[in-house]
Amino acid sequence: MKADALSGGFFDPVFGAQAVFRALLRALSRPGEIENLPGLVRPPTPLNPAAAAVIACLADADTPIFLDRPLAESEAVRDWIGFHIGAPIVSLAGRATFAVISDPEKMPPLADFWLGTEEYPDRSTTLVLQVTGFEGSRTLTLQGPGIAETSALAPDPLPARLIGQLEENRRIFPRGVDIVFASRHAIAGLPRSTRILNGAA
């Protein structure tokens, strides 16, 4: 382990985690709204600060994390997660409580992750998808719990095949994964309960 891994965690673990959690709670209870998450942690690249803050807030030794290839291949990222979070890193998507994806274009299909059961739908993966921003070319129109009428979300990038998978994810409700999009300094939530109105077009 390099010395770099020892720095860059929450400056204040208690209030840092609390601030991130409230932003996450707003993001997932109001799908489509963008929550600012100023740099509370300084992770090694390619892990971005908002995605790192989300897992530092929620994950610990009880919650296996799946990393996509660019993240898993970074020793610095694995060391940072090991030191600051202490979560086991797993290579099977279907075993992970959390998954961090640095390159959504090449991510495994959503159905590969832990989807929960009809009896225990809560036992499913929460995915953190790193994006560059929320002004992408494709805008999703969202409807469902947490949304008064409709809301809009345009994560960039948004792979075309992911849209179809998100619709399938809604079809198997109450099973399914929940998604947090994370740009460097902001997050947006897309829980399984949200319907995409303009998907298949």
Partner: peptide
Amino acid sequence: IRRAILKAVAIP
């Protein structure tokens, strides 16, 4: 508890 709350929000 925070993990449980977020799952609860996702499955009203």
